[in-house]
Amino acid sequence: MSQRPEILKTVTVGLLAGWLLSFVLAPTLLVVGLSLLSRSPAGFAGGPVTLDNYRRLADPIYLHVFAESFATAFIATLLCLLLGYPFAYGLARARPGLRPLLLTLVIVPFWTSSLVRIYAIRGLLAAKGALNNLLLAAGLIDQPVRLLYTQTAEIVGLVHVLLPFMILPLYASLEKLDPRLLEAARDLGAGPFRRFRHVVLPLTLPGVVAGCLLVFLPALGLFYVGDVLGGSRHLLVGNLLKDQFLEAQDWPFGAAASLVLIGLLLAFLALYAYAAKRIAPDDG
């Protein structure tokens, strides 16, 4: 029996390529097309090609949602970076025997339901929740403070859910960092700050960018964080998308809004490619 490699090549590569083209590339192109149409009473979209949907994004109502959502996501990302970087650094320098356990402890939340964990945060922050009870018992406050349904609650929730997404890429790039480079920098007279600024930071920049991408974009999109912790007061871009697609049924406008996210994704990926290329120019 002859086994022709060509057939296997076609099957293995073809299946993967077919899937990605049908379920990633094609739908994205559909969304691009949809965003250029307008809402139609007959079907879900129709009419002449127009840029109206993009103009409507600049409408003060939506602009406000975007601005607020971006601010929330930005603060959450910054917090994740500031909390996550020293943590990842410590993890990369932890005793080798202990490292797999410590790492698994970060990976577990990465893979467990963020909805469930948001709900857990809600339990902590509720008026009659654990945090208020603790503060009351400690005598720090005399009546429950309102923690839930604030922007702070949203940010705490986002940081809780997304921190592992920041730590893991940071850890990956910090672990690859050769300690001898730091010794060399020290030997050449660089103090701790300059060692960080000129050696550690540039070499871990791809990790920083990847971490920010994995935190910032979901932070815009996790609509149930807005619902469960922010109440209806603090909406995220995700809530806007959900409303347009599932309630208002204005698909073309929703498509335009989601293209903003796709644009951001591509910008982040370009930045990542740039940062990675600076370190390893030939790495294909």
Binding site: V13, V24, A26, A210, L214, G221, L261, L265, L269
Partner: peptide, 28 residues
């Protein structure tokens, strides 16, 4: 390389982007 890139982008893209485009595809 393009295929690898597409996999990487899919891995990195936020759930909601995938959700919206798949909904559009399925309805279409």
């Amino acid at each position: 390389k393009f295929l690898m890139g597409l996999l990487f982008v899919t891995l990195m893209s936020p759930d909601i982007v995938m959700a919206v485009s798949l909904l559009v595809l399925f309805i279409g």
